[in-house]
């Protein structure tokens, strides 16, 4: 099939819906943390096992570092979530979102033999929803839609116009 369009309408719609849904999820995760004054990543990090546990212990044992991590995590989620929904810097948002989710995964991977005090909401072996969401975001970075549906369309135009003016 040859077409000038990068995606068929159905492909585009599916990718945009996927982008907006993941954005919605991360945005709410961010706001939940922001609006809960008692929230801290300490609980999550204290549960950390496997390769990230040393780093996580260092973070939780250091009040200053913990505050920075909490701040970056909360506002990072909000920025990524809003970026995905609006299609604003959506590619950057996808990549950072994928990295962030992958870090969550590395802290609590469902590997055989690792046990956590908080039960997971499903049954997982190595692959869990966090990892799937991370990979999905990575896929969204490879199949970007924000320059077709999203604020990046504007940005693209502005940049292009500036370039044309410079050329003139």
């Amino acid at each position: 099939m040859k077409s000038n369009k990068p995606f068929t309408n159905l492909q585009l719609t599916t990718l945009v819906v996927l982008r907006i849904f993941i954005g919605w999820h991360l945005l709410f995760e961010g706001f939940s943390k922001l609006l809960n004054p008692g929230w801290s990543s300490a609980r999550f990090l204290r549960e950390s096992q496997w390769i990230m546990s040393g780093f996580s212990n260092w973070v939780t044992s250091n009040a200053g570092v913990l505050n920075v991590v909490d701040f970056l995590n909360t506002w990072g989620l909000i920025a990524i979530g809003a970026g995905l929904i609006l299609g604003l810097f959506a590619r950057t948002a996808s990549v950072f979102g994928a990295i962030l989710l992958f870090l969550y995964f590395l802290n609590n991977p469902p590997l055989t033999g690792l046990e956590y005090s908080l039960p997971s909401e499903g049954n997982y072996l190595i692959i869990n929803k966090t990892l799937i969401e991370a990979v999905t975001l990575f896929a969204l970075a490879i199949f970007p839609t924000s320059q077709i549906v999203g604020f990046d369309l504007f940005l693209n135009r502005i940049i292009k116009r500036k370039k044309q003016e410079e050329r003139k």
Binding site: W24, F28, I85, L86, V149, F151, L153, R157
Partner: peptide, 25 residues
């Protein structure tokens, strides 16, 4: 390169979603 109606709609497609999000939040 004119920002016609269709383009604006496409660019701002996420805004109503944010609106619904805000209301639900």
């Amino acid at each position: 390169n004119n920002l016609n109606r269709r383009t604006v709609l496409k660019a701002l497609a996420g805004v109503p979603v944010l609106g619904v999000f805000g209301y639900e939040l």
